[in-house]
Simulated assay, not measured.
Amino acid sequence: MKRPGPLLTLLAGLVLGLFLLTLNATTGTKTASSSYQEKSPSPAPARSAASTAPTPSRVPAAAADYAGRTEDDAAAIAVSVRDGKAIAYYCDGHTEESWLKGDVEDDGTLRLTGENGAKLDGTLQDGRQIDGTVTVGGGRHAFAADRAKKPSGLWKATATVRSAKIDGGWIVLKDGSQVGILTRDGKPSPAPRIDPETGAVTVDGQQLTARPATP
């Protein structure tokens, strides 16, 4: 039997060498890829828009006065707002009146109460107007009161004249008209006009001074 020639031996060695080179190349590529994937950082979780959105701030109602009439024109109403508090006066100019007070919420809503079950529910409209309803003496009235500019607004006077206790309330509307009631020892009657520039008013021959009413 003849031995394989040198040429065959050389060819076999070349084939084996190529096979080993191919195997090493393939193994090296896989190893590098695996190593890269293992070291790659995981992406950070996305933050939702709700978690990043700023919380809207609410601004307390600005100090202001409001005056107007009920929709049925039965009475006038004025509201004074200061530091989150409010005072209101409902007056028909004859015998029916009510003073109410309470808080002003940051969203502009008002819930005011007075004697004998009187109440006012209203909402500030962009600081320009108060819309709502007022319940006095069993009657419920819708109203709209515009922001007042001096001398319009709410006025009040308390004094003793000829041994009688005097309590007066006035609403000065933007057209200059006045609606008010003066009580003498608890007995109501239409109030005399005040000077809207100074608040001066004459009651039973004695001069008094009405002043802007605030909470």
Rank of each mutant, 00 (worst) to 15 (best):
H141E: 00
A142P: 04
F143K: 05
F143Y: 05
F143V: 01
F143I: 01
A144D: 03
A145F: 01
A145Q: 10
D146T: 03
D146L: 03
D146A: 15
D146I: 01
D146S: 14
R147W: 05
R147A: 11
A148Q: 09
A148P: 03
A148C: 07
A148M: 09
A148S: 15
K149N: 11
K149W: 03
K150C: 01
K150R: 13
P151T: 09
P151W: 08
S152F: 02
G153L: 01
G153V: 03
L154Q: 02
W155M: 06
W155Q: 08
W155V: 00
K156E: 10
K156P: 00
K156G: 11
K156Q: 12
K156W: 14
K156Y: 15
A157T: 15
A157L: 02
A157D: 10
A157F: 00
A157I: 06
T158K: 14
T158F: 02
T158Y: 05
T158G: 11
A159H: 08
A159R: 07
A159K: 05
T160Y: 07
T160P: 00
V161M: 06
V161A: 06
V161G: 02
S163F: 12
A164Y: 11
A164D: 14
K165R: 14
I166T: 15
I166M: 15
I166G: 10
I166C: 10
D167V: 15
D167S: 12
D167R: 12
D167T: 13
G168H: 04
G168I: 06
G168F: 06
G169H: 10
G169T: 02
W170R: 09
V172T: 12
V172G: 04
V172W: 12
L173Y: 08
L173P: 08
K174M: 02
D175W: 07
D175Q: 10
G176E: 09
S177W: 05
Q178I: 02
Q178V: 07
V179H: 09
V179Q: 13
G180D: 03
G180V: 06
G180F: 11
G180Y: 13
I181C: 10
I181V: 15
